[in-house]
Write a protein that binds this DNA or RNA. Structure first.
Lengths: 143, 143
DNA sequence: CATGGGGTCTATAGTCGCTATAGGGTCAAG
DNA sequence: CTTGACCCTATAGCGACTATAGACCCCATG
């Protein structure tokens, strides 16, 4: 059984689909522990870093904020603790995501309605889209 | 028929549901033309500013970026021009919005699936959420 | 006329999650 | 020994605001 040699930042980045600058950024904000350095001052990552970065990326792909990731990382190391907090974070994020979907759906509906009124061949002065974007004040008698 | 007196920035903000700082920000980035100033150096807005800011807010509420708003504002003043460009911007934004909805929907589905596997009463070491967030590498024999 | 409170002014820095740039150092292949 | 790919730090920029500090103005009340 061979022991794997440490990874350069480029290896780590490629293995996780992260950009090199982003890896350094995660280190700077304390998400990824600083690895030891080689003689030439290169970062030398261990498999543990790979695991951790993969965890971070997976969370980010799921839309968690970096603060939530930080909390999840912290919790994931407390093996004996109840997992209620984890559940709470995930549920909150799901709720937020569902709300965002609802908002965007409502919005898309409005956009479709606005766009459908436009004949497309007209000029700006008659454009239904511009008109729809120009809400009239109640006290404005010209509307 | 009475002529309306100029508005303070606070009046304008309240009338459009914008924050005062945001109004100043729109001026700084060239979206809202600088109004004349009073003796005390206060901004004094005309009805035209009200119209323009309402247009901006409506666009923002519909999710257009400030750059798109800038372009729409520019186009809306070209009364004789064809409205094809307006249509293009709106359609592009609708497409982007629909894509975002699709992304978030996929994401919410994954989150629901992950969360549903968690019994809630367990400890972190057995937490299905943490587990689901910890993707295993193919070359990692422990998975 | 003084005072107090609320609104306004500018300028600057912070937010989030990166991304880009400048100006260098290191390393391995040819 | 040179070339080119990689790595290093530090700093600034993105979008769309938001927050803060410190000063100024205006109006109503005493």
């Amino acid at each position: 059984m061979m022991t794997s040699s440490p990874l350069t930042i480029g290896d780590l980045a490629k293995a996780t689909g992260t950009k090199v600058v982003t890896v350094r950024y995660y280190e700077r904000i304390g998400l990824l522990p600083p690895p030891r350095r080689t003689g030439g001052n290169y970062r030398a990552y261990e498999p543990m870093h790979l695991d951790r970065l993969r965890f971070i990326r997976r969370c980010r792909d799921l839309g968690f904020t970096l603060d939530q990731v930080r909390e999840l990382l912290h919790l994931s190391s407390q093996e004996g603790k109840s997992c209620g907090e984890v559940d709470r974070i995930a549920a909150a994020h799901l709720a937020a995501t569902e709300e965002k979907i609802a908002d965007l759906t409502r919005l898309a509906g409005q956009l479709r309605r606005i766009i459908s009124r436009c004949e497309g061949g007209g000029v700006i002065a008659d454009c239904r889209i511009i008109e729809a974007l120009s809400p009239c004040a109640e006290e404005d008698e010209s509307c």
